[in-house]
């Protein structure tokens, strides 16, 4: 199967990104959390939303990342639509607001890579080997409280769409996410063009939005 070069490269960089130290988690913790995300996505007997995965025997006994991070990773990966502000606050209180944002980005990145390969029938690439190093602690010069998101964002808040600013408090995750979106969906500047298509004979904009709407509906994602 001939996958577009830009897609192949975006997924390769996404896996490399997962393996590297983030702002708040080490590479080893990130890869471990990515494995929990994959477990949640393909779990043949998924846990209900209210059961913490760390209260079961489904994860390795020795874990580098905090239990709350694994519990949040499983729940967001499998039951994202059940996350309420109370649930977010409970996890963020344990992990910290910015580590919580990084965790969401690990989940959404792994969801993208895993889904694409399953959707096309290609094997999901094996988990990358963690890259040594301490978390970078990178964050924007100024954070702001958003009205369009629960999580803090890079100041100024609410000047772009909620999904665009969602990861802005963890810059590395923001870059990785929008690199993936450019390749999977469309480059951001093209969003305003209803007749944009990637190539002659490719999906029209309406066909793309049909796929997007159906997936979001089945995931019970209002946004």
């Amino acid at each position: 199967m001939n996958v577009r070069d830009d897609l192949t490269e975006a997924y390769r960089l996404a896996w490399e990104h997962i393996a590297a130290p983030g702002s708040w988690f080490t590479g080893a913790q990130r890869v471990e959390l990515a494995s929990t995300v994959q477990l949640a996505m393909v779990d043949p007997d998924p846990l209900p939303p209210w059961v913490a995965v760390t209260s079961t025997d489904r994860l390795p006994a020795e874990r580098a990342a905090p239990d709350a991070a694994h519990d949040a990773a499983y729940r967001i990966a499998r039951h994202a639509a059940t996350i309420t502000d109370d649930v977010h606050r409970r996890f963020a209180d344990e992990l910290g607001e910015l580590p919580y944002v990084e965790l969401c980005a690990i989940v959404s990145t792994v969801a993208a890579v895993t889904s694409f390969h399953r959707n096309t029938g290609l094997p999901v690439p094996p988990m990358p080997s963690p890259i040594d190093g301490a978390p970078t602690r990178e964050q924007p010069a100024e954070l702001a409280t958003a009205t369009l998101n629960w999580v803090p964002v890079a100041a100024p808040a609410d000047e772009v769409a909620a999904v665009v600013q969602a990861y802005s408090a963890v810059p590395g995750e923001w870059v990785n996410t929008w690199r993936l979106a450019d390749a999977q969906y469309m480059p951001e500047p093209e969003m305003v063009h209803p007749d944009w298509t990637r190539r002659p004979g490719g999906l029209t904009r309406a066909q793309m939005e049909l796929v997007a709407a159906r997936v979001a509906l089945l995931r019970e994602c209002f946004y």
Binding site: C104, A112, L148, Y185, V215
Partner: peptide
């Protein structure tokens, strides 16, 4: 493949939106 990539994108975006409380 293009359709599979769009579907994957919205598996990503739904987790992003619902994890961060996007409205």
């Amino acid at each position: 493949i293009d359709a599979a990539a769009v579907a994957a994108n919205f598996e990503m975006m739904t987790r992003l939106a619902d994890g961060t409380g996007a409205s």
